[in-house]
Amino acid sequence: MTSTKSQPRHVAIIMDGNGRWAQLRGRPRLFGHHAGARRVKEIVRACPGLGVDYLTVFAFSTENWKRTQAEVAGLMRLFKRYIRREATSLFEENVRVRFIGDRVKLEPALVDLMDGLELMTAHNTGTNLTIALNYGGRDEVARAARRLAHDVAMGKLDPRAITDETFPRYLDTHVLPDPDLVIRTSGEARISNFLLWQSAYAEYEFIDTLWPDFTPEVFAEVLARFGLRDRRFGAVPA
């Protein structure tokens, strides 16, 4: 690959800081999560004008089950509420919605809503919104490896054909391009088990802004900084 300076086509965001945002205002953590959900709507709407075709957001990780039962239950209610309230708008705004992650542990009512929203927006051709729900990068790779092993055992795949190009076909994101840019809000500088395989050559941006304060204007500033980066993909500059 050659050196390129361009607009990111696929942006992935670790939406961090909802709880702290709420606590700074003397409110419960779920108040921050609701504010964060409203921010997702604004960022999705900003994508076409900013040249972003694919947006992937980290909504709930496989590790988030360790939070208090009250917070987890509140988040699950929020996810269902978000889908019910936003489904029509997402469809009318031509957004294609996908979910990645392990759905086995999620309650059936939520999974039904997720399936319905994916089906409803399946033919939309605008922004591709991917929501990572009960998602973990290591878990995704392990599930992909099991599917791959099954195909080998069934004689559908020759082990000698397994490469870094064939393996991604078994990942949750097999229909998506790899992210060009990964953003984490709230000042934390770690990737938290997010898109481990896919982000091998992504650029990272760790910013102090808490997620509910991540406006389209802040988004545009981060994208502008990305445009100044020299992405060589291991090559030497000319």
Score class of each variant (00 low, 15 high):
T4L: 11
P8R: 00
P8T: 03
G17T: 07
G17R: 08
A22K: 07
A22T: 04
A22E: 01
L24C: 06
G26N: 10
R27Q: 13
R29M: 10
H34G: 08
A35I: 07
R38Y: 02
R38A: 08
I43Y: 01
R45H: 12
G49M: 10
G51H: 12
T56D: 08
F60Y: 05
T62N: 02
W65I: 09
A70N: 05
E71D: 11
A73V: 01
L78V: 05
R81K: 09
Y82V: 02
Y82C: 00
R85F: 02
S89C: 10
L90Q: 06
F91M: 07
E92R: 12
E92L: 14
I100D: 00
L106D: 06
E107C: 07
E107L: 04
L113G: 07
L113E: 15
L117R: 07
M120T: 14
A122D: 06
L129V: 11
T130H: 02
A132W: 05
L133D: 11
G136T: 03
G137H: 10
R143D: 01
A144G: 15
R146Y: 12
R147Q: 14
A149N: 05
V152T: 03
A153K: 06
G155R: 01
D158Q: 05
E165Q: 15
T166M: 06
R169P: 05
Y170M: 02
H174E: 03
V175A: 14
L176N: 01
L181T: 13
I183E: 11
T185V: 05
A189Q: 15
R190C: 09
F194K: 04
L196D: 04
L196H: 04
A202Q: 06
E203Q: 13
Y204A: 05
T215D: 12
F219G: 11
E221F: 03
E221Q: 14
A224E: 15
L228W: 05
R229A: 06
V236H: 12
A238L: 14
